[in-house]
Design a protein around this nucleic acid. Structure first.
Lengths: 143, 143
DNA sequence: TCGCACCCTTACCTATACGTCATCCAACGA
DNA sequence: TCGTTGGATGACGTATAGGTAAGGGTGCGA
């Protein structure tokens, strides 16, 4: 409920400081500032202090999801820019569509690889559990 | 059909040289040697020349899939080691099982993120196609 | 008024994953 | 015998994604 900055570093309930946002998203403030450096996010300032809105927070969440998916910051930036394209420029729209489709293909491909791996790991898991049971059982008999 | 090394660098049909394997997998020879340096793959040698079997090729394919999934070489190494664990050591089995389950959790998580993103991109795609149609139609009328 | 908690910027440090020479050796065909 | 192709180090270079101080400013409660 603090309107001014208290011990927590909060400005208001709808705005965040870097460290607040960082804690919220389980990253460091350094990381957030670094993303700003790279042009992925541009918070407003109160004086020279960064002020993040909920929209900024959502954007950060998108960035982090992109990272979980294994994309580089450059790629994530391009991806985020897809949301900000001017829809009146027809050539720009065509380009955008092409990019979106390429990315979709990549993701579908990645999903396939992912599912293959999950299946294999589950097999290993099952075999391992089996082996474990066998081991324990034989020890019980031997003991 | 070459038994000796010909112009292609082939040794036999079942063995590969670095560059052959590299071409086959669309990576550079440097990459493969680097993986060896990091202990991810250990081909046999003919003298001091690397000789890769089909098994080596399969292992390389696993490595590359791991990379597509966004894992580091260190993680991929750990993952590959799962295939080589001695199944008689019960504590080792328990550890293995734990690792497999952790990795599975990560992958399921990743799959979720992936599917969210795919859905969003498909929405953008649909909207963009729509906008494109509108643009073209209006230009046709105007022209 | 001191210290603490945060904020900012600048700058150097680090790990990962290769790319890029440079140098040297061996085999093969013209 | 020479040139080309390919293989093997070894060393240095590079991009990405931050970590880690260093140095300095501000507001606030004790």
């Amino acid at each position: 409920m603090a309107v001014k900055r208290g011990a927590s570093g909060a400005i208001t309930d709808t705005f965040f400081t870097v460290t607040e946002l960082a804690r919220d998203l389980s990253v460091t403030a350094r990381t957030i500032r670094f993303y700003e450096d790279k042009g992925l996010i541009t918070p407003r300032r109160a004086g020279n202090i960064r002020v993040y809105t909920k929209r900024d927070r959502a954007r950060m969440a998108l960035i982090l999801r992109g990272k979980r998916l294994g994309f580089s910051l450059r790629e994530i930036k391009e991806y985020l820019d897809l949301y900000d394209v001017d829809p009146t420029q027809i050539e720009q729209i065509r380009l955008l569509l092409k990019q979106v489709r390429m990315r979709l293909e990549m993701l579908e491909d990645q999903r396939l690889a992912l599912e293959e791996t999950i299946v294999e790991l589950k097999e290993i898991e099952a075999q391992t559990e089996e082996a474990l049971k066998q081991e324990v059982a034989s020890k019980r008999i031997a003991g």
